[in-house]
Amino acid sequence: MMRVALFVPCYVDQFYPAVAIATLGLLEQLGCQVVVPRNQTCCGQPMANSGFARAAASCDQNFRQNFGEFDHIVCPSGSCVLHVREHNPLLTGQIWELCEFLTDVLQVRALPHRSARPLRIGIHQSCHGQRGLRLSSMSERNEPYFSKMETLLRLVDGINITTPARPDECCGFGGTFCVTQEALSVKMGKDRLAQHQANQVDYIVGGDMSCLMHLEGILRRQQSPIQVRHVAQLLVDHAL
């Protein structure tokens, strides 16, 4: 049985506990022994991306204290994983984004008994997951197509995956950008949503709740029926 530590991003802990519960359940269903260190907080990215990486040393230290003993740390956010990998000098062990942990470490090739009611979904690749962690190919490069999230979602019956017109355009969340450049951020989000709305999706599914929280905020303001879901919520077996 593989022992892994679950790192839950601070905003997921506070606003989207269901995503963390689904991630925990999914990892356990796949045979992992999951430890949730109690004193975990934040990866430090909000400060670092605002130019205050120096101030995030307290987060780096706290991360080390909570996760220092683990060989494998799994996190349901590409963005937080990218930050820790690139900018936490105290990191020991390996930190994985959930989808890549499933495809590359656990090498999940089947997800038995999962089925969803017929669903049309649009995948929202977060830029940090896609371009930063290389969770999928990108339209900028001349390279063969691949997508770790899509590979996993195709293991669930009943899911119909649609592709937005601009497959990997940023949604405009961008951390503190979403408030410091509020007008631009919302415009980018509206444009991103319009591409999914054109595909008449039921859910927009992603690996980063930060992007999805921003898109959800616009959807609710538009009184749209479209829902956002973290990929873990579609991959977990709800019957177990």
Binding site: P17, I21, R38, V179, G217, R220
Partner: peptide, 28 residues
């Protein structure tokens, strides 16, 4: 609140994941 100008805020859940975990699972 610049977030609220063009977006709704997320609806806050009754408990955080940490609180849920403390109630439902034993801590290490």
């Amino acid at each position: 609140n610049p977030w609220y100008k063009g977006r709704d805020m997320p609806s806050p859940p009754a408990q955080s994941f940490g609180e849920w975990y403390d109630k439902n699972r034993s801590r290490v």
